[in-house]
Design a protein around this nucleic acid. Structure first.
Lengths: 231, 231
DNA sequence: ATAATAGTGTCTTTTAGACAATATCAC
DNA sequence: GTGATATTGTCTAAAAGACACTATTAT
């Protein structure tokens, strides 16, 4: 730790966001179309500079609010990892601290706002598209983190509105993992995990079929024992 | 993503290392004593600047080699997370990308080398000590990451020499988790996990008792199903 | 022989997964 | 009623944990 931080190399630090949500049963990611070189016209993850007096977490939350056009974005925000290949930005050395955000179905970013060039893209399509910079790798890492965390945390509730049914929650798992789950075993599993769900006592009729009980997310953050993805 | 990276705020980027190893059955971390202000005389995690033309991973590997005094450090190295509170370094804005390294019992860094001021400190003691900067928090995050990853990955083998016994591996779990494990159930568990261990066909006598079979680490990276820490 | 550690086998409890059966709605 | 979805219950197979027992060494 023998360094003189006043004689450091020129490095820019940005935050980039992998914002995931569920729209129509499919996993979507928020992408912006770049208006400038390099990668003009290419899709990219939203992001921007870390300002001099804000923490990394604050920078990520600020960018998230700006790019979605929402003041308070519900859901979950956590640091993903940092990307610092010297060649990842052709202009100069840019170290990006990537964040992963999970949110319930948010409105399409409105035209005429700062977020006008942002839009939701199905992850299945975005993953096959050439994104700007190393954003394809960041997106892949973010999706994999989300998939993994569903196994052993209560993170799936971050994709849900404040009140949701067991079927809603199951839909999250099925969309993120891309697999079908047995509704009966899933129901037994989540309702028997202490602290995961809080019964509101009310129900929600969703077309035909028996109305489902409405739950809120409980305090439990870890799933003990975890769900298993492949079995 | 509308930014001009040539007009960025002044930020320094460093890597800091949480290097963990097992010495005498106890988890140790590599710390250096700071020779300069701020925090002169205080213990700190080893680390340093990211050079202009190296990746973050390369910077971490270089610092690891420099601070241990070893050319090729065996074990495991992975990015932990980044720390960028504006006040974490009183001199200027420093964003640190922390790395977690797990290694078999390495020699004490030799005097007269670049690593002369580095030494192994039991994690139990270091956690109760005031470290420089926010390094106590980084250390805590690193230890927690190691504990968590033992549950569902083969990472414990990174603490072991190239050839090791089942008892060696069990000692890793017991030291990192701080719990006693049943030797018989542990043996059955690890030897029945496909690809985790490769039998060398040889044994190692360790004082009295039946000699233990020697294994090498296999290709398996994930433990399916995972170990459970509390039960 | 005795102590110590390595390794195997057995039993019980718990859990996952398959799936039958029942409940409650729209139509 | 039929069809759809929600929820509960039952069965079986797999796994975890407790622990008796055998194997192989040093002393």
């Amino acid at each position: 730790m023998t360094y003189d931080p006043t004689a450091f190399p020129r490095v820019a630090v940005t935050v980039d966001l992998v914002v995931l949500t569920l729209r129509g049963g499919a996993l979507h990611v928020l992408l912006v179309e770049r208006g400038e070189e390099p990668f003009r016209g290419r899709l990219a993850l939203p992001g921007g500079f870390v300002r001099p007096d804000e923490t990394l977490d604050d920078a990520a939350a600020r960018e998230l609010a700006e790019e979605t056009g929402l003041r308070d974005v519900p859901g979950h925000l956590e640091q993903l990892r940092s990307y610092g290949d010297p060649a990842r930005d052709p202009r100069m050395r840019v170290v990006s601290v990537a964040y992963l955000a999970l949110a319930p179905d948010l409105p399409e970013p409105a035209a005429g706002t700062d977020a006008a060039d942002a839009r939701w893209v199905p992850v299945a399509r975005a993953s096959g598209t050439a994104l700007a910079f190393d954003h394809a790798a960041i997106l892949a890492d973010g999706v994999e983190r989300a998939r993994a965390k569903l196994e052993y945390t209560s993170l799936a509730t971050a994709f849900c509105p404040p009140e949701f049914t067991v079927a809603d929650l199951r839909g999250v798992y099925e969309a993120v993992w891309g697999t079908a789950l047995d509704p009966r075993n899933f129901h037994r599993k989540v309702t028997s995990t202490p602290g995961l769900l809080v019964d509101t006592g009310r129900t929600r009729a969703e077309g035909r079929g028996r109305p489902a009980a409405l739950y809120r997310a409980g305090d439990a953050r870890a799933l003990q024992p975890p769900f298993t993805r492949e079995a």
